[in-house]
Design a binder for these strands. Structure first.
Lengths: 288, 288
DNA sequence: GCCTAGGTCCCGTTC
DNA sequence: GAACGGGGCCTAGGC
């Protein structure tokens, strides 16, 4: 692990440090007064101001202001970083192809530049995803409906893959769409597309089906939306389509609970602590 | 503009600098060896490794590894940052409510800590959005269909707002959905929801309609998807629903072109330049 | 490479 | 505050 940091370097110095850091495959941060131009899938211009530029060895580039989780400008991994001094400015350019996109940061002044060699795990262990919800449903299919039996996951249809496909106690096909969180109309539309596709399949253009199959397929394919909750409009649409809602989310016990992390009560032997409150105004420290 | 930077601070020093930086409303970067825990809408654990933590005065927190555009862990703006030393580690915690979420970063060692006061514009001028496409369509409605006349934008329906609503040369209602880029099945589903809602409206449960209106509404509401291109599956679905596709994207001339930024040919008077190529293998510098 | 859908999506706008 | 849809969405998984 190494960190190189230079304060208020000349453009010449900054360029040299950038070159070296590129060579080493370092994670780089550049803080300075700059303008930013982008052109590619869209195009943008950002006027002069202080920003933090992050350059990653995988080709990712991020331009951050003092606000927001999302960078004001960026380049995804796979881009190629390029630095030069021109017209009295330090230029950092990040380019990629497919789609052709260019990000250009022009520093009129660099306040600080750092380069760090990064090591260590990148594997995030995440709980509470849709996959966890699927596991839950497959382990306890009766949560969907009494007698429900899963047949396949990611079953392909003309409209896309169905999360869980199965049959109910009457032997009728069931299309299940899973959502880890509260859903809106789009999820109902997604389910409707899948159900329509399965109905089309079973009513079989040009394919042979026994009469009773063709006759019943139209109504007998059930649609079930599994989600913790629905918006009003989603519920209306769901009812219009004749689909069902099962109120269920990913298991909450998977992973550490929010309380365990949020608990301030055992901070008694802290050396010190401090806080800053975001947004408008401040509020007293809850842990006091 | 001020930058404070400390190299390999003790936890005590780091804590003091963090407190001061919180107070000043600085943009903060902490680079060090740490583990990260998150609990909230989901939950995650990240083992020990070197990462870059960014703390913004608006409450945003980002944990970045050396890979990816997306932070490995984060907290959106509106969170409250909190620092302490405990069990020989520097703890930075970022909490928010609604939803209740906590991010906890435990540093066993801080390699570098910086705090910067940020000033300057945050206004990004962006071209090539869906709004630009809408402007284009409204200025030249004949691009949708001969004789098409826009009536309203963001027209409310039971299924949500329609991008552009109008009538064609036959006086039939037209629902237009705009997409700035190539679209898949989801966009067709969205259009289908809107068209169905307008049809329901015009066939009017309980409302009076002249016979010919009610009789024709079912078929006469047209759906048009405006997008640069469609996937095959989206095209199939669109055809099934009897909707039309108009191949059109946002105006390309809005904003600087990618070529203007990407052009290396005028770098002849560079002081120097360098590049790093991402991903597997390297390729020769195109500007040579 | 394209396609498809998930995401701790984030984010602005409107109600 | 909730909801709804856009996004330069990004990212993973198939094919």
């Amino acid at each position: 692990m190494t960190v190189i940091s230079v304060h208020a370097p000349s453009h010449r110095e900054a360029l040299w440090e950038l070159e070296s850091a590129f060579e080493r495959g370092d994670l780089i941060t550049v803080f300075g007064r700059c303008t930013v131009s982008y052109a590619g899938r869209a195009a943008s211009e950002l006027g002069v101001g202080d920003r933090l530029l992050i350059l990653k060895p995988d080709g990712a580039a991020l331009v951050h202001t003092d606000e927001g989780r999302t960078p004001v400008n960026w380049q995804p991994p796979g881009s190629t970083h390029h630095a030069a001094v021109r017209e009295g400015r330090l230029r950092v350019r990040s380019k990629r192809t497919n789609p052709a996109e260019t990000l250009l940061v022009r520093f009129e002044r660099v306040h600080q530049l750092s380069a760090m060699s990064v090591t260590g795990g990148r594997d995030l262990e995440l709980h509470g995803s849709e996959e966890d919800l699927r596991t839950r449903v497959l382990e306890r299919p009766e949560l969907i409906a009494p007698g429900f039996e899963p047949v396949s996951t990611e079953r392909e249809t003309a409209a896309g893959p169905v999360d869980v496909f199965g049959v109910d106690d009457a032997g009728d096909p069931v299309v299940v769409e899973l959502k880890r969180r509260r859903v809106g109309p789009d999820a109902v539309g997604q389910l409707a597309r899948y159900v329509a596709a399965v109905r089309d399949e079973l009513t079989g253009d040009g394919e042979f089906l026994a009469d009773h199959e063709a006759a019943t397929a139209d109504d007998s394919v059930r649609g079930v939306l599994v989600a913790p909750s629905l918006t009003d409009r989603a519920a209306d649409l769901l009812a219009d389509r004749g689909f069902d809602h099962v109120a269920l989310g990913p298991p909450a016990d998977a992973g550490e609970s929010v309380d365990a992390l949020a608990d301030d009560s055992d901070d008694s032997d802290d050396l010190d602590d401090s806080n800053t409150t975001a947004g408008s105004g401040s509020r007293p420290d809850e842990s006091a």
